[in-house]
Design a protein around this nucleic acid. Sequence first.
DNA 1: GCGATCAGCT
DNA 2: CACAGCTGATCGC
Length: 420
Amino acid sequence: MESGLISVDRWRKGSQAYFLTHLHSDHTRGLSGEWSQGPLYCSRTTASLFPSRFPGFDLSLLRVVPLSSWRSLSLRSPSSGSSVRLHFMAIDAHHCPGSVMFMFRGDFGCFLYTGDFRWDCEGEDGARTTLVSAIKEFPVDILYLDNTYCNPIYSFPSRQVAAHLVADIIASHPCHDIIIGIDSLGKEDMLLLVSRLLNIKIWVWPERLRTMHLLGYQDIFTTDTSLTRVRAVPRYSFSIQTLEGLNMMCPTIGIMPSGLPWLKRPSNGVGDGKLLSGSLLTASTLPCRKQLPAGVHQFHDYMYSVHYSDHSCYEEIGEFVNLVKPKSMKGIVVSSACYVEPLYYFGRICRVSQPPELLLLRPDTAEQFRAVRIKSFSGNDETIDKEREKRLKRDGYSSFKRNKKRSRIQVKRAKISEID
DNA sequence: GCGATCAGCT
DNA sequence: CACAGCTGATCGC
């Protein structure tokens, strides 16, 4: 697509319409209450959170996009001046409340931008139905894919299984206070399931309660500590030290539902990092520290982590790509630990064969993963090179060490690529 | 002094 | 390594 038309999760000047997939801060960096650059398209749920997230935001610039239905708008080509018709549709991305993928089509072709997404939806699912019928009518030319865990070493349970694991840990500590680390948006489904399974309310901090109410959860959450022994607290607000302090007053354990990768190592030993054992334990049989179920890790007497991710695991990414069968695709996350262009693993699924240079050899060691990552990173992101040039001009060339450090950071910062 | 960006931590 | 996102330091106006 020509540049100067639209931006997705990017907020630089020069686009005629801006699309926001979800409200996590790494996708909203640059948005503020002073926004005036143009219309901003998002889901209804995201829109409902806008006033509290960005006080002062001119709500007349928000455009609510209903799920699963085509909308269109007219843009002006910056080069030719002619009118460009853009059709777009939002599809539930199952990442966090309000998160959507966007499908765009027009004379330029058909693009699907997933934003962050998790493809572990079970049972009747509107997103899948919508997607299947949309791609049947409009085959996808380019898939912009959430490739956070696009590597077979990333394998972890569905969120439903993970939520059961959290409930199991709580039930096996009937006399403990429990604190669960969460962020400002996300993991609500886990808390709901825990609440339902254990028939308890869950404490959240006041701002988070307001968010819960905006999301339509009225009765499950409370800010009254006397009503429940389970508290969901800001993830950054507790540590082993906090827990040790709390345990001087009352027996307390912490549970960290973490997106941090649990690597599935190449299988050549016994029980090595395997995650999907399917052995869901009942509350009464949760084993001692040495024999925890797959997906649970106890790294301190008071601290558990449960592998809970709002991004698709490798297997789910594969299923998704196989369903969409795009002509080509591109990863939108360039900083994950074992980043590999999705084409490396899933290129063969695409309808047109891919240029072979990315597919040289399968990386099996950390070093080789790094090599593939760097190759694809430096090979195709002009924007980042320009940024680096600008930065170097500004800062001057200082010591080798400093430059080296900076370039590492740029890889980290340059997280989301764009499609404008 | 203030907002934006960077660095570090979990 | 790194999810998402905080705090505190520094930069630029």
